[in-house]
C-alpha cells in the first residue's frame, strides 16, 4: 500500500456538514481536485523513477519541472475556485495558506467622503490541508507609490493580530485596515502582505487615497 492511510475519523464531526454555503462548497471542491492531482502526480513520479527508460527515449525535461508544473496546476485550481467563490462583500479575498505564488490583491480605498479610518478589507485565510496551521500573523511593512514615495503617517493593521490555530479544512477572516495619524498625500500606494507562520503566502496590497 502507498500513501497516507490514516483514517479521517479523528479529524472532524460525525458527519460532514452539508455544504450549503456555495463559497465553502467551491473551496472544498477545489481542495479535493488539487488533492487528487497531487496524489496522482506523486504516484506517477514514483513509478517513472523505477521504470527503465524505453529504448526510444530521447531528450526529456528535468524531472522536477513536471512536479513544479503540477504544483502550479493545483494552485491554479484552488485560486480559480477561490476567485470564483469570493465572499459577496467587496474588498474580501481568499487565499490558501499552503500555496506558493502571488495571491489576489487586497485593495483599500480612502475616499473624500468617508473617514480616513473607514476603509477595511478582509483576507480569508484558508487551510485546505488535513493538518492545523498556526500561529499566523499577517504583516505589511511599507507602502510606496510608483515614483518611490513612501506613504508616511499610516499603518496597516490586522485584526486579529494573530490567528493562533487555523484548523484543517477551515477558513478564517482577518480584517485589514489603515490607521492614520494626520493628513495623507493622495495617490496609489502598494505593498506586500506576508504571514509569519505561512512562508509561502504573499499578497499585494493596494491603498488608493483620494485627494481631500
Amino acid at each position: 500500500m502507498t500513501g497516507d492511510s490514516r483514517p479521517d475519523r479523528a479529524r472532524g464531526p460525525r458527519r460532514p456538514r452539508a455544504l450549503f454555503d456555495p463559497v465553502a462548497g467551491m473551496r472544498a471542491v477545489a481542495d479535493i481536485q488539487a488533492e487528487g492531482l497531487r496524489a496522482a502526480t506523486d504516484l506517477l513520479e514514483r513509478m517513472l523513477r523505477s521504470e527503465p527508460d524505453g529504448r526510444g527515449s530521447r531528450e526529456r525535461p528535468p524531472r522536477g519541472n513536471y512536479a513544479a508544473l503540477v504544483d502550479a496546476w493545483a494552485d491554479l485550481l484552488q485560486r480559480f475556485a477561490a476567485g470564483l467563490a469570493q465572499p459577496p462583500q467587496p474588498g474580501a479575498v481568499t487565499v490558501p495558506v499552503d500555496s506558493g505564488g502571488v495571491g489576489p490583491a487586497v485593495r483599500l480605498a480612502l475616499g473624500e467622503t468617508e473617514g480616513r479610518d473607514g476603509a477595511v478589507a478582509e483576507v480569508w485565510l484558508h487551510n485546505g490541508t488535513f493538518s492545523p496551521v498556526g500561529p499566523l500573523a499577517l504583516r505589511c511593512d511599507q507602502l510606496s507609490a510608483s515614483d518611490g514615495t513612501v506613504l508616511d503617517g499610516a499603518d496597516v493593521r490586522f485584526e486579529p493580530r494573530a490567528v493562533e490555530v487555523l484548523p484543517p479544512r477551515s477558513s478564517r477572516a482577518v480584517v485589514v485596515s489603515l490607521a492614520t495619524n494626520g493628513s495623507l498625500r493622495a495617490g496609489t500606494y502598494r505593498g506586500m502582505i506576508q504571514a509569519d507562520g505561512a512562508p509561502r503566502l504573499w499578497l499585494p496590497l493596494e491603498v488608493a487615497i483620494a485627494p481631500c
Binding site: 472544498a28 479535493i32 481536485q33 487528487g36 492531482l37 496546476w73
Partner: peptide, 22 residues
C-alpha cells in the same frame, strides 16, 4: 450520499483529468 463520498470522488477525478490536457 450523506458523507459526500460521491461528490468527493467526482471532484477528485476532475482534478486528475485537469492535468491530462497538458
Amino acid at each position: 450520499n450523506a458523507y459526500g463520498s460521491i461528490t468527493f470522488a467526482a471532484a477528485y477525478g476532475r482534478g486528475i483529468a485537469g492535468a491530462a490536457l497538458d
